[in-house]
């Protein structure tokens, strides 16, 4: 989508996005897990600080100086930057000493992305070009080892690129999935199998398989269409899975 990404690839991304939605609508996806949760209002309310955008004032969460008329203009803040002093509420004084800060959503990935972007903006280089450059670097590096390892290494790079691109989504999906019935049912076994792996890595691994399964199902649908197999139109809502294609859960 960014400058530098060919139109055909943009169209492919559109198609994948639409196809994933169609798969969901037709009931072909194995689970009814959320794909992506943008709504973080609950966590934002629990952030240690609240910024009143209507009055331009930063408060500690729960400060009584926040007027009722500003409740619909509050933004949860987890970390205060250097500008905080100028906008700090004199009553609760959020700059006085740090509040216990629950971690915001997706902060590690977000910070990395922002830092990267700030660099990009300085050099007026679009994100996509930088991503492609990284990909190129990875491809240019000698893999080493036997030629038959190339396939595995390519697959590993593919998985890593998806984890890298959708890292924050995967983490969120992981949190959702762990709360779900299916996630809870798997919990015991997963813990046993991955006893050596720490909790956050385990969460990412759970979700990765589901996300990749969804993506794989969409790609199979598209590939089927390209190979002349019958695909459903946008408005079609057939609940019957095609016999020519394996179900998404079978592919995992």
């Amino acid at each position: 989508m960014s400058e530098g990404i060919p139109t055909s690839r943009v169209a492919l991304i559109d198609t994948i996005g639409l196809r994933i939605q169609e798969l969901h609508a037709s009931g072909k996806l194995a689970s009814d897990q959320p794909l992506l949760r943008i709504d973080n209002s609950e966590r934002a309310r629990q952030a240690p600080f609240q910024f009143d955008a209507a009055r331009g004032q930063l408060h500690r969460t729960g400060c009584r100086a926040i007027p009722p008329s500003s409740r619909s203009a509050l933004y949860g803040v987890w970390e205060i930057g250097t500008e905080g002093k100028a906008v700090a509420c004199p009553r609760c004084n959020p700059m006085d000493k740090p509040a216990a800060a629950a971690e915001p959503d997706a902060v590690p990935q977000q910070k990395a992305k922002q830092t990267e972007e700030a660099r990009q903006d300085e050099s007026t280089k679009p994100e996509a070009q930088q991503g492609e450059a990284k990909q190129g670097e990875a491809q240019a590096k000698p893999v080493g080892g036997r030629p038959q390892d190339d396939h595995t290494v390519d697959m590993l790079y593919g998985v890593l690129s998806i984890v890298s691109q959708f890292g924050s989504v995967l983490r969120e999906r992981g949190q959702e999935y762990r709360k779900s019935g299916a996630g809870a049912a798997l919990g015991g076994r997963i813990e046993k199998i991955y006893a050596e792996v720490n909790e956050s890595e385990r969460s990412v691994l759970d979700v990765l398989t589901t996300s990749l399964g969804t993506l794989a199902a969409a790609l199979r649908e598209i590939e089927g269409g390209l190979n002349g197999e019958q695909t459903r139109g946008a408005g079609s809502r057939s609940a019957e899975p095609s016999a020519a294609r394996p179900r998404q859960d079978e592919a995992q």
Binding site: L36, I38, D39, N40, S41, A44, Y75, G76, W78, P104, D105, A106, V107, Q109, Q110, K113, Q114, S168, V169, E172
Partner: peptide
């Protein structure tokens, strides 16, 4: 990054 805290709060 649509999971950036400000982006998602503004959208919501």
């Amino acid at each position: 990054d649509v999971l950036h805290p400000v982006v998602r709060q503004a959208v919501l």
